[in-house]
Each structure stands twice: as structure tokens, then as C-alpha cells.
């Protein structure tokens, strides 16, 4: 066995932050997983792999769900697990087709709860138009898991002409966002902290594939799509900026945030830019197609509040900067630790 490439002196054991979607997660991947398992598809470190099978272009993606609580305002772990994988496939420019369902159950989980989750899986799959075609169930001793963990993997078909990749970004491209941010993370957080609001904040978990299909069908120049989950919009933009090499600028005043979410963030000391979304699409598009794409997104029930939030700059320094509400400009860095643990 080759020696462990992550300097042991740094962390002797895995910390929660290694799974937080921030810099420690990235380092784990870069230092341990990628070098050991390296291949051209994995090395792209996209949310899903784009592969060619017998001449057909396929997207393949997997994700595990360990959210706590398993039933939360606006959804539960079952639909989250379906939507998450559907969205990863959609962001590859694929039409999601088939998914798998791996259940890890803790001894003692109430059958009623399990049934509710399975029904949600079915409803979410129907909504997204995908089939759950294979699965697996394991049960572990009480205390060895937290009620239920779910893994879903999925495949989808990519059109021959589809070309979405950060490498295609150009200065002047527009950065679009399909709606209000940070709702999933704050919905989870408010259940944990006991925060209550006049109108409850609910998770935005939803399948984005129908919206993506309409965008792709329009022939608009789409450079990249991401669903900004863990680490939020800030981390997703940093990842894309690093892949394509350009500097991005976003404008704080144009980023849609619900008042209650902003208020909760102020109380909890959180930045909505780093909070998870589970039903939002972040896109970089050809500037000539900005209005066309915005119109398509806004016509979709999930995209009414879509906005252009910034653009790609002609500077190759891989930074994301933001014009603040008071008109100053600052760097928006990738998140380092976890802001909130186990939100997906």
C-alpha cells in the first residue's frame, strides 16, 4: 500500500469538516481520492461524470444523503436523495433516466417513517420522470447510523451537440441564478436551533431537469450549470472560476434572498452565499443569450425569481469578487470548514 499522501501531521482523523463541501473536502479529494483513483473523468471533479458508452454519451453521478433531521420543513431525505442525483445529472446537460436507491437503515427505525420516505422517493421520481431501477437495503445495529442514510446513483443521456464545461467560459459571459438562495440550509438550521418565523422557511428541494431541458432545447449558449448545494453559491462559483481560470464578479444587490432567510442568517451569523440550496440552478451563459435564458427560467414554476447576478471578467486570476450593497468590492472565497453539518 502506498503511503498516505495527506500529511498526517495535519489531521490524524477525519473531521466533520472533511465532508462539509469546503476546502477540507476539496483537499481530501485532491490529495487522497483523485491521485489514487485518477482517470480523465474523475479528474474533472464535476458533480457527475460524462462518459461515452458504445457510442452514446452518458452522464453518471452518485450522492449519499445523511441529513439530520430526516424529515424537515419542505421535504424529507427520500425526495432529497432523488432530486440531488437528478440535479447533478441535469447539470451535466443530461436527461436523467434511471437511478438506484441504496438504503442504510438503523435498527429501530419506525416502519411508518420508512414508508413515508419510500413514498416520497416514488413521488420525486415521478415528478422528475426517472425510474428507480435497482437498489439495496442494509440494516445496522442501533446507534451505528442515524435512522436512515440513502445513496442514489443515476445515469442520463447527453445530446451529441451538448457541450457544457467550465473550459468554455469566456469574458463577458453572464452568471445567472434561478431563484432565492440559502433556503434549504436555513430550513434545516432553523429546525435545529428552534428558530421560528412568521412564515416558515422551507427547503427548496426540487428537480431541475425539466427546466434544464427547456434551456438546452432553446439552443442557447450554456457554458456551465451547477446546482449550488453544500458550500452554496460562493463555493460553486469558486469551483467554476478555478476550473475555467477567469475572475468572476457578482453583485450583492442582485442576488435574490428571502427576507426571512436573510434575517435568520443575521441572527445565526451565517452568510447566505455559503448556505446550501437543493433546487436552484446556477448558470454561466453566452451574453447574447442572457435574456432568452432568463425568460425560459422565469416561465418555469421553479424559476420565477431568476436573476442575472454577475459576469465573467477578462482577468485570469481565478477569483470571485463581489460588489457589496454599499458599492465596495471584496473577495468571496471558498468556504473553509463546514458552516452547518449534515444538511444533505
Amino acid at each position: 500500500m502506498p503511503s498516505c499522501p495527506v500529511p498526517i501531521s495535519e489531521y490524524e482523523r477525519v473531521l466533520l469538516a472533511h465532508g462539509g463541501g469546503g476546502k477540507l473536502s476539496a483537499r481530501l479529494f485532491e490529495k487522497m481520492i483523485r491521485p489514487c483513483l485518477s482517470n480523465p473523468w474523475l479528474d474533472l471533479s464535476h458533480d457527475g461524470a460524462m462518459i461515452r458508452l458504445e457510442g452514446r454519451r452518458i452522464a453518471f453521478s452518485t450522492d449519499s444523503y445523511v441529513i439530520q433531521p430526516i424529515i424537515f420543513p419542505g421535504g424529507n431525505i427520500g425526495e432529497l436523495a432523488v432530486n440531488g442525483t437528478v440535479n447533478d445529472l441535469a447539470c451535466c446537460g443530461a436527461r436523467p433516466m434511471y437511478i438506484s436507491l441504496g438504503l442504510i437503515l438503523e435498527e429501530g427505525l419506525e416502519m411508518e417513517v420508512l414508508w413515508k420516505i419510500i413514498c416520497s422517493v416514488r413521488e420525486a421520481a415521478d415528478r422528475a420522470g426517472v425510474k428507480v431501477v435497482t437498489g439495496d437495503t442494509k440494516v445496522v445495529d442501533r446507534g451505528k447510523a442515524d435512522r436512515i442514510f440513502i445513496n442514489t446513483s443515476g445515469i442520463g443521456i447527453i445530446g451529441e451537440e451538448t457541450e457544457v464545461s467550465p473550459a468554455s467560459c469566456r469574458p463577458g459571459d453572464k452568471i445567472l441564478l434561478s431563484g432565492k438562495i440559502a433556503e434549504h440550509g436555513i430550513a434545516i438550521m432553523s429546525t435545529r436551533t428552534g428558530l421560528e418565523f412568521d412564515s416558515p422557511i422551507v427547503s427548496d428541494t426540487a428537480p431541475l431537469n425539466h427546466m434544464v431541458e427547456k434551456i438546452m432545447a432553446s439552443g442557447a449558449g450554456i457554458r456551465v450549470m451547477r446546482d449550488p448545494t453544500r458550500g452554496g453559491v460562493a463555493s460553486a462559483l469558486n469551483e467554476i472560476s478555478r476550473s475555467c481560470g477567469y475572475r468572476f464578479i457578482i453583485r450583492e444587490k442582485d442576488i435574490p434572498v428571502a427576507g426571512a432567510v436573510q434575517g435568520a442568517c443575521e441572527i445565526l451569523g451565517l452568510d447566505p452565499l455559503y448556505i446550501a440550496n437543493e433546487g436552484k440552478l446556477l448558470l454561466i451563459v453566452d451574453p447574447g443569450d442572457e435574456q432568452k435564458v432568463l425568460k425560459i427560467i422565469r416561465a418555469d414554476p421553479l424559476g420565477k425569481e431568476a436573476a442575472c447576478i454577475g459576469e465573467v471578467l477578462d482577468s485570469r486570476d481565478k477569483l470571485v469578487e463581489m460588489e457589496t450593497v454599499i458599492g465596495s468590492t471584496r473577495i468571496v472565497d471558498m468556504i473553509s470548514g463546514e458552516q452547518l453539518p449534515r444538511i444533505c
Binding site: K180, E252, K253, D254, I255, P256, V257, A258, G259, A260, Q262, G263, E266, P272, E305, A307, V325
Partner: peptide, 12 residues
């Protein structure tokens, strides 16, 4: 940031 369909955040 824009607070859609809501009043401004008082004191912020």
C-alpha cells in the same frame, strides 16, 4: 441582497 416580496430588514 434583494429581499423579494418582503419588507426591508429593519435595522439592517
Amino acid at each position: 441582497m434583494t429581499h423579494h416580496n418582503t419588507l426591508p430588514l429593519k435595522y439592517i
